Amino acid sequence: MKFHTRKWVKPEDLNANGSLFGGKLLSWIDEEAALYTIIQFENNKVVTKYMSEINFMSSAKQGDIVEIGMEVVKFGNSSLVLKCEVRNKMTHETIITIDNITMVNLGQDGKPKPHGKTEVEYVVNRLKDR
Rank of each mutant, 00 (worst) to 15 (best):
M103F: 01
V120I: 08
K24Y: 11
L25E: 00
S78C: 13
V104W: 05
A33R: 02
M103R: 04
L25F: 00
I101V: 10
G22D: 06
L80S: 04
Q62C: 14
D129Y: 12
V9S: 00
R87L: 03
G22V: 09
G76E: 08
L80T: 08
N125L: 07
K2C: 14
E53Y: 07
G69W: 00
N125Q: 10
N88M: 02
A16E: 11
F3V: 11
M1H: 12
G76L: 03
V73T: 10
V86S: 01
Y36A: 09
S59Y: 05
I98H: 06
A16W: 04
F41C: 07
I29W: 01
N100E: 15
N55Y: 10
L14T: 01
F56I: 07
H115L: 00
I98D: 05
K117M: 11
Y36V: 06
M1D: 13
G18P: 03
R6C: 14
A16L: 12
I38E: 07
F41L: 10
F3N: 03
F3I: 05
Q108Y: 12
E53I: 04
V120C: 10
M51V: 10
T97F: 08
E31D: 12
G76S: 03
S79L: 00
N44M: 07
L25S: 06
S78T: 11
Q40L: 04
S19E: 14
N88V: 12
F41V: 05
S79Y: 00
K83H: 13
L82R: 04
M51W: 06
F41M: 09
K45F: 09
N17C: 06
D13C: 00
V123D: 14
I95R: 00
N17I: 12
S78K: 07
L25D: 09
A33S: 02
K128F: 04
M57N: 11
D109K: 00
V81K: 07
S59H: 13
I39C: 11
G63N: 02
R6Q: 14
R130H: 11
N44K: 03
S59W: 10
P11T: 07
K49Y: 11
I68T: 08
E67D: 09
I54M: 02
W28V: 07
L35Q: 11
K113H: 10
V73A: 06
I101Y: 00
N105E: 07
D64N: 05
K49P: 15
L26Y: 00
M51K: 01
F41T: 07
H4V: 15
I68D: 08
I95G: 05
V46P: 05
A33I: 00
L35H: 12
M90T: 14
G69M: 01
G116E: 05
N44D: 02
N125C: 07
V46E: 01
Y50L: 03
W8D: 14
N43H: 00
E85G: 12
I29E: 08
I68Y: 03
T5E: 13
D13S: 04
I29S: 02
V47C: 03
K128V: 15
T37E: 03
Q62I: 13
G110S: 01
G110V: 00
M1C: 10
F56H: 07
K24V: 15
V104K: 01
R130C: 15
K89F: 15
D99M: 00
K117Q: 11
E71A: 12
F3K: 01
E67T: 06
E67L: 02
L82K: 02
N77G: 12
K83Y: 12
K128R: 11
V86H: 02
W8M: 12
T37S: 09
W28R: 04
